[in-house]
């Protein structure tokens, strides 16, 4: 374990701190669950490696911390892949909006130059922890989506656990916090499933994302939810991932009805389609188009 973290000691350098901060920014900008979960593991590994190198965090404890985060990410990924759409139904605006928010928060933080004083933590590390806290607040503020909310809360756990391990070096406290991380993740995994079951998806008006409680009552089910949640294109590599997944699904032949039987037409709830088409009719029209 010591060797593993010795190999990762570049995270303790200034470049490492910048990499971690950039990963956090990327998680917010892309707002994709795959990027968020991968970023979470990278941030956890980086902060743990930094803790080992800079604060004397035992390598075994750091290893346990990374293992807990890997399990948490796996639990969230399992819930995310079981949902009908690959992206959130409560999307946090589009990527230019999120970019502006990240830049604004970063500039405000650098201008005010506030750093939470944590005993036993070097100022640059405390700065990183403050940035993690700000990113957490931004993610919580951007959306009600359970996956991104729990990612934000897990981001808060990362520096907190390193700081607490230095201040209260007690194994039972460390184990308790790790166990609570898993319990919170389990709860969030359940909430992801009940939130994302076929519920609602319609193109939100840009300004409506600011008032998530005012969802229109006539939201209906569409099977193209992920096409309509973002009004502007995503960054290139994320768009590629989404497009490839979408192409793979479209390449599968639609389930054909038995000969001489009516097509299984799923009626849309009011508002799901302006002209009253059913999902199967929409799909058929798209296939022909």
């Amino acid at each position: 374990m010591e060797q593993l973290f010795a190999g990762l000691d570049f995270f303790a350098t200034e470049t490492g701190v910048l990499i971690i901060m950039a990963v956090i920014g990327l998680m917010i900008l892309t707002w994709d669950w795959r990027v968020a979960l991968a970023g979470l593991v990278v941030v956890q590994t980086g902060v743990a490696a930094m803790g080992v190198a800079r604060t004397g965090l035992p390598a075994q404890w750091a290893g346990v911390q990374v293992a807990v985060m890997l399990i948490a990410a796996a639990m969230l990924a399992i819930s995310a892949v079981q949902t009908p759409t690959s992206r959130s139904l409560r999307q946090a605006g589009n990527w230019p909006l999120r970019t502006l928010a990240v830049v604004l928060i970063y500039l405000a933080w650098r201008t005010i130059d506030v750093t939470i004083p944590v005993p036993g933590i070097a100022p640059d590390m405390a700065g990183l922890f403050t940035w993690l806290g700000l990113a957490m607040l931004l993610m919580l503020g951007l959306s009600d989506n359970p996956l991104f909310s729990v990612v934000a809360l897990l981001l808060w756990f990362i520096p907190a656990q390193v700081a607490v391990a230095g201040i209260v070096p007690h194994p039972s406290i460390f184990a308790l916090i790790g166990g609570l991380e898993l319990l919170v993740t389990l709860t969030a995994s359940y909430l992801i499933l009940v939130d994302r079951l076929p519920a609602a998806a319609r193109r939100p008006v840009m300004t409506d994302v600011v008032f998530p409680d005012q969802e229109p009552k006539d939201w209906g089910v569409t099977d193209d939810a992920e096409e309509v949640v973002d009004a502007l294109p995503l960054p290139g590599f994320v768009q590629d991932m989404v497009d490839s997944g979408r192409a793979a699904r479209r390449s599968q032949p639609p389930a054909l009805p038995a000969p001489n039987s009516a097509a299984p037409a799923l009626p849309l709830p009011p508002g799901g389609s302006e002209n009253g088409e059913t999902i199967s009719e929409q799909t058929a029209a798209k296939e022909q188009g």
Partner: peptide, 28 residues
């Protein structure tokens, strides 16, 4: 087990998770 909005149960987790580092740091 109700399918739909999860904002309430989700937000229940926020205050104690936000609070715990502050109180533990106080021990130092």
């Amino acid at each position: 087990g109700r399918v739909g909005r999860v904002a309430g149960p989700l937000r229940l987790l926020i205050p104690p998770i936000l609070a715990f580092p502050f109180i533990l740091v106080a021990t130092w």
